[in-house]
Design a protein around this nucleic acid. Sequence first.
DNA 1: TTTATATAATTGATATATCAACTATTTTTA
DNA 2: TAAAAATAGTTGATATATCAATTATATAAA
Lengths: 152, 152
Amino acid sequence: MNISLPSETIFHAIESTIKEYRKFALKNISASIPDMTIDQSMVLIFLKEHPELTQKEIAELVFKDNASMTRMINTMVEKKYLKRSINNDDRRRFKLALTAKAEEVLEKLPPIINRNRAASLSGINKEEIHQLKLILNKIKSNCKHHEYIENS
Amino acid sequence: MNISLPSETIFHAIESTIKEYRKFALKNISASIPDMTIDQSMVLIFLKEHPELTQKEIAELVFKDNASMTRMINTMVEKKYLKRSINNDDRRRFKLALTAKAEEVLEKLPPIINRNRAASLSGINKEEIHQLKLILNKIKSNCKHHEYIENS
DNA sequence: TTTATATAATTGATATATCAACTATTTTTA
DNA sequence: TAAAAATAGTTGATATATCAATTATATAAA
């Protein structure tokens, strides 16, 4: 049976694009904030906007599983970006609080991230972005809802 | 300074799409071939088509760095999918050869991968795929060629 | 209200990602 | 041709990804 080389597929294009963007964005972020990563930035930004988020909810927002999120938050606590404390309303969860160091970083991050986004989207108009989103969502929904193939 | 939540950006859409596809594809592959991953499949397919590829070249094709590729190929050798041998034309490189086990797997993979691709792209026409590729390439090239932001 | 089920988070095992430092070669160039 | 630079690959350190098993707590069902 014939198959296209992976490098010719749309999936290859999608994957290489997001990797290139992440590399670009990380370089600009860590130039200003050496111990900060993209995903850790995202966690800080989400927590700033929605302080009540649980680890599980944050994990979903940044497409990680719970185990990864536990470890990521461990390192963020070690690096003094977050404080974990007991949530007496539901003792299975934790309260996650931003530290002063996090608040400082949250002052510097938005301009960097906005410039990253603008630079990587330069020459692309809103309609194109809209189209892109529609098609990507269709692919995503196909992947989510398609039956898995029978083991033949 | 204001910033859109990461979950509203096109980058979030790109990333979540490729992750959903990888999850879907992996499930279908490992249902038939338990110890096989997507990236290992890609390596086998590339090597089948281009047997002379070096580790470095394969790494580029699947967007990994050399260190990751070294370790990935180590595990593929341990799992008896590949054989590494000395290349006397250039002793810095290795020759990578597919084993009989790899050839067997290469019989089963293409129909699975073709079905994965077709299922995840159902309802999307060629013109849309073409548009998608164009825009993604533009983003990628913006990320590659933009000057990094000055540390201000 | 006890038992069963569900949920949030952690841990262990294994694979992968990434950077920087390193070894062994090969190629360039002075 | 000898020294310098480039190339292919490895290794160590650290972070992250993923699955399955586990703990602690909360909610639902009998």
